[in-house]
Design a protein around this nucleic acid. Structure first.
Lengths: 307, 307
DNA sequence: GGCTGCCATAAGGCAGCCTTATGGATTGCC
DNA sequence: GGCAATCCATAAGGCTGCCTTATGGCAGCC
């Protein structure tokens, strides 16, 4: 008894057999598979030669399964049914689940508050957000989209700039009521939220202010712009924030920006995804939605001066 | 919700995926499938592009299934397991079941009595005999071998002559004890079994006997040579038989053949099978066995004169 | 630090697969 | 009874898809 690992015959031939057995017709099977009747005949012959026994009896105007064919057909059809179901399931999730890897700051200050609108536009796409402090590698993980900070050049990735990484001091209107801020150094007279954030140094440097010394101030670092902006709105002092993260608060006057000066880190926030998958419907949907959201923000913040 | 018939991806790629998922390794899968690692990588990429989502995460020195890959793998493996089982089963029957379509006379007088020896030689081959009065069409039925009468020329079929369709009168030695048969016409003095068989006319004609008239005799037609031979051995008269069908009885003296004259129908008994399947082990086994049986018979009946 | 193991990718060739075209065989229809 | 239609087999031919070889990158390991 030779007990070879029972190599399976060519799968393409098996697939043709499955269709032919179901239809009991080569012509019908060819239609279903989108090929010619001759190709079906060819593939069936391949399989029969491989097995060493005929699977169909060729009757005048029809084909019928032989005993071996009948022995084979139900199992094969069942197996293919299982495969069809499995692939349909995966395709379903591929189309309907969108997983995003995003930086914490961006998720909290921008993405999460707006997600409801996307869900409303695309109720059949379930969005899964994975927050991470570090940039995702699409080769080693399984995300559809990523939000990352950088210069927009990543090999193999399509990148859309959402907005530059700008920052400028803001505060509550109450904090400076009755006070006229003439120049940037006037800010030093007020409490500064998260003064140890190095970007403060950058902004003051860009403004020509020399004597800002964070070590002289209480280090109440709040960690994320979300909290810093909230503290500023509560009148606790000046926060250094990216105006793109607070377009509503700025336009509604809950936050005011006393100086047009915007510093930049030369990096920006980018939406990225593998170039190869740019045709994916859900990716297109999310990208388009995101860019339109950004466009709306840009309108609202159009009053802001550029650096 | 588009509800297309969910076309299956290329089966060859699915097969590669199944092996790769099982091994969690492209290299190992390539070994199993007898191809190169590059080919596996290529096929997996095909499938991933088709699905629009990665199935494996490429980690430094290994690959791991993604969520979608894990969703797909068990079902695919199960389906392939079913396919393997089904094909193994068919191959088993292909190798171990030999179906023969044979003429009634041949089955009764020659094949069935000897089958035991073949079974003994090849205990793992199950022989199925289908007796039919008419010749089988290998294109429209499902037999491995056929025994048929004819001139040995059938397109697409391999044919081995088993023996010519000869016939000669025989009887029990007791029937003619003490009698000397000088010429063929002497047979007319004895009872004739199945006198209405037209071959009797042929034989007497070949022997130069004119006055044989079957209508003058009781028509106790027994139908098959098997029964006719048995009747002859029982001393009931002369039977016209093919000596190849009774080699043992002739050599043991249970039947005697008074005249060397053998008439022939110019047809013979042939073993046939589709040329395309001549490599089949079971067909080779049966053919070789059958031809050796025939050779043995020819030795036993070598005393018989040719026409 | 070289070595090994694993995967990706490019280039290139071959064969397998599919198509077109034709023929045979049977059925069904006037 | 002849003609059209249906269905499958087969031959010829072309193209593309698949596989191989070769190379490179990357990480872990002695």
């Amino acid at each position: 008894m030779s007990k070879l690992p029972s190599k399976l015959p060519p799968m393409s031939a098996v697939r043709v057999f499955e269709a032919a057995a179901r239809h009991q017709s080569f012509t019908r099977a060819a239609e279903e598979l989108g090929m010619t009747q001759a190709a079906v005949s060819y593939q069936i012959k391949i399989l029969e030669d491989r097995l060493g026994a005929p699977l169909f009896m060729r009757l005048p105007r029809q084909v019928t399964l032989t005993a071996k064919g009948r022995q084979l057909a139900p199992a094969v059809t069942e197996a293919f049914e299982a495969l069809r179901t499995a692939f349909a399931g995966v395709e379903e999730t591929v189309q309907s689940v969108l997983s995003i890897s995003t930086l914490t700051t961006f998720a909290a200050n921008w993405l999460v508050p707006r997600l409801g609108r996307f869900q409303h536009l695309h109720p059949n796409i379930a969005v899964q957000i994975h927050v991470s402090g570090q940039v995702v590698d699409f080769g080693q993980s399984d995300f559809d989209l990523g939000i990352r900070s950088g210069n927009g050049s990543w090999p193999g990735l399509e990148a859309h700039l959402l907005f530059p990484n700008l920052f400028t001091p803001v505060c509550s209107p109450e904090l400076i009521r009755g006070v006229t801020l003439k120049e940037p150094s006037d800010i030093l007279k007020f409490p500064i939220i998260s003064p140890s954030d190095p970007w403060w140094q950058d902004w003051f440097a860009a403004a020509g202010v020399q004597d800002f010394d964070p070590s002289q101030r209480p280090d109440n670092n709040l960690g994320t712009q979300q909290f810093e902006g909230m503290a500023a709105m509560a009148g606790q002092g000046f926060a250094l924030i990216n105006p793109y993260f607070f377009p509503g608060d700025l336009s509604a006057g809950r936050l005011v920006q006393p100086f047009d000066l915007l510093a930049t880190s030369e990096r920006g926030y980018w939406l990225v995804y593998p170039k190869a998958r740019r045709r994916s419907a859900k990716i297109e949907a999310f990208r388009d939605w995101m860019l339109s959201e950004v466009a709306d923000d840009t309108e609202k913040t159009s009053a802001l001066a550029q650096v």
